[in-house]
Computed example of a mutant assay.
Amino acid sequence: MKANRLLSLIAVVTALSTAHTAQAAEPVTNYPTQVVKIVVPYTPGGITDLLGRALASRLEKKWGQSVVVENKSGGSEAIGAAYVAKSKPDGYTVFIASDAAFLVNPLLKKSLNYNPETDFEPIMRLAEGLAFLVVRPDLNIRSLKDLLALAQAKPGQVTFGSEAVGSPSEFRMRLLGGLTGGYKMNHIPYNGMVPIISDMLGGRVDSAWLPPHLARPQIEAKALLPLATNGTKRNWMFPEVPTLTELGFNQTDLSFKMMLVAPTGTPKPIVDKIARDVLEVMQTPDFNEKYVRFNGYTGIASSPKEFQDYLVRTRPFLKQMVKDAGFEAQ
């Protein structure tokens, strides 16, 4: 009698354990079973938004589930980052952002409503972007040397726009200024890149580092004049434009990297599945050509571990660069 009861109890416990295991595994095995949201910390039209939407479209076809992009701009990516950090860690909210959100903000902001080091699960670095430094033709500036000299001659009067405070664009300009007599330009931060172009064409901003897909039509129309590009070699779009390294400023050559994360606590099997599927999409030749290379970017998709290693390796480097560039946390 007691033996029968013991066997029944064991059977019940086993059944419950099996059911619990099945329930726990179900989201991983069947993921995704509902809409997946990709949060972009910029306004529509920029390269991060463009890549996010292209990736969403390919993943939607691959997964048979809706994948949507939600734009949450502002605060140097901090608004979008905080939103994702507080989201349920189930794999249905992910975040595409740059070094600003994951590395730079804690160095520049005394108060953040998210923790870049503990609030996210790295999924993958996606692409590394180059840019063109452009100016308005009516400024009669024909070289980077001319622009820096004008900034020295007119402290605080020469403006440049960037996508955010602490962006690679701002770092470049501060370092360039520091190497040529001191940083004396007037920085105007925006929530994304597209509004900068409107203000440049309207005569309200003098200069900016623009991603190739936005700079190209303006350069071809001669509405904006390119002075330099970053990267180890000249950009295939405009091979006549010199690199910062050629001009003697290799230490200012920072790039814009797009990276994908999920909220901390997202199950590892889901993170790994997203990483595998995103890597497959990013390495598809037509996707890489149309959405990455054509826009002047380079695919760097690899793995969650590679992304984590990059964060650990880069934090001390950027910390020193922030100090050298004269930034002060605010």
Rank of each mutant, 00 (worst) to 15 (best):
S8H: 08
P27F: 09
P32K: 05
V40D: 15
T43A: 13
G46R: 01
S57F: 03
K61L: 13
G64V: 03
S66P: 05
E70G: 03
I79L: 14
G80E: 12
D90R: 09
G91C: 11
F102W: 12
L107R: 09
E121V: 11
A131E: 13
P137Y: 02
L144D: 10
P155L: 05
Q157R: 14
T159A: 01
T159N: 00
F160N: 10
G161R: 11
G161Q: 11
S162V: 00
P168V: 05
P168D: 04
M173I: 03
L176N: 06
T180H: 11
G182E: 13
M185N: 01
P189S: 03
P195A: 10
I197H: 02
I197N: 03
S198K: 14
L201F: 01
G203W: 12
A208H: 03
H213W: 00
R216M: 12
A221S: 14
K222D: 03
A223Y: 02
L224T: 05
P226Y: 05
A228T: 02
T229A: 10
N235Y: 00
T243C: 11
D253H: 09
F256N: 13
K257W: 02
L260F: 04
K268V: 12
M282N: 07
P285T: 08
F287L: 14
V292L: 13
R293N: 07
R293K: 15
T298I: 08
V312D: 08
T314E: 15
M321A: 14
G326H: 10
F327S: 11
Q330E: 15
